[in-house]
Design a protein around this nucleic acid. Structure first.
Lengths: 141, 141, 141, 141
DNA sequence: GTGGTCTAGACCACG
DNA sequence: GTGGTCTAGACCACC
């Protein structure tokens, strides 16, 4: 089964970022194995009906972050050792993201247990979809 | 002790958004009480070394979300909490926030268990600070 | 026929608000269809002889209300209608709008029957234009 | 029974305007009769716990609009003949207000009948509260 | 003094 | 090309 990526066209998160996130999630969760080849820019762009520039940008970002690497003449491959940010920067960014989520959750009236529960469910889903058992959520519009 | 807000310049999250989140967190957690006055646009702008427009934008956003309200000629005040969003909208927004966090977590190389753990810790802290027992974190960053 | 928006300068209702209301009315009545693109910020600003910021603000407001949505790099599009406010909030806002109209009507010397009559006529027109039978009014003001 | 005015401190409509509207509604509906005296600036300010300037401003506005008139040395009185705006200006402002209400109503998901119904109820209420008895039922259609 | 609106112009991210 | 953010500074309404 080929890597499947779904784009939400009406989302506030930019398309290239959606690609980055989904490739990254697949790599982290093992859906994409180390050294595995990614679809070419052209083919992915065609498959998703996107401007090739957009796909190229996503791949560039992933490469800059060390998640994938270019093997000239052969294509893009999942990088064997990927640890992107320094400990401090990594922690700081995550800290910020967590704080932001918790604030939004409280604002919307969710309680701590519900917030944790939702995050848990979401990570489980992501892991599941990465291991080849796609959940029924989040399809392209 | 006056409300302290700390800004990270050069962050991917815009300044006005950082203000919104921090004021919101303070209001939701009880750090700011109902009917309490906020610092004036001008004074906060001066304190944070920002353009008043930026602060005004944050306040405007908060007012539209029903967190604070303008009393003409007198300033901005924390307003009584009310649920302004429909159930569907709340779910939609929370969904998006959770997805965003999980994606960021994966991108930074955290695994599901770690992400959940961090969220759990953060909600516990927030709940503690709301019940009047401030934890030792959460001061200026 | 392109969407025409007419601005009354020197009105008590701010320019950005006039844009919001007219776009909103067009979207709600079906004059603008789902997924239809709006004029770009810059082009509408030029057309109306306004600062782009003013148009941007109107568009931002509409996006926050869920009437339109931004597709990064491509523009603003009419989004599928959804009910973003809770029942209580809807009632609260409608309450306020009705009160405001009635107050204005009295201030202008209209009596109750006249006010009701005007509203009735206006809703009939709006409903007509929504069902594809535009009335002979509603052009430039 | 003295003229009663109620101020909503957390409203977006300025205090002086709330006074203007309520005095005007009382005059239009007959709760205040022609030539009837209004409370003095001082006494009303004291009664409503407001800055006298605010009351003075409201009275000034009402006087400018011809709804009340000053009889030097004796106080403010309801003006006998009050017709403020020219026909065109009056119609234009009302037109604008009605359009605004209908747009908001549709946006919030109300249908024409509901909107009309709400306006009707509101005008009846205003009239009732002004005359001290339930409403002029037969007036409208 | 307060917030609210508008203009002007810069810089960035996205496709 | 698109929108989004920020700065700078003007003017107004409100109390």
């Amino acid at each position: 089964m080929p890597l499947t990526i779904s784009i939400l066209t009406g989302s506030n998160v930019p398309i290239y970022r959606q690609i980055v996130e989904q490739v990254c999630a697949a790599a982290v969760s093992g859906r994409l194995r180390d050294d595995e080849a990614l679809p070419s820019v052209r083919s992915l762009a065609e498959q998703l009906v996107l401007n090739p520039n957009t796909v190229a940008r996503a791949y560039g970002e992933l490469a800059r972050e060390g998640i994938i690497e270019s093997r000239p003449g052969r294509g893009m491959f999942v990088s064997r050792r990927r640890q992107i940010y320094s400990g401090a920067e990594r922690r700081r960014r995550m800290e910020q993201a967590v704080t932001s989520l918790v604030a939004e959750g409280f604002l919307l009236g969710y309680n701590p247990a519900e917030i944790v529960e939702l995050v848990e469910a979401r990570t489980r889903e992501a892991a599941a979809s990465a291991s080849g058992k796609p959940s029924n959520r989040g399809g392209a519009r």
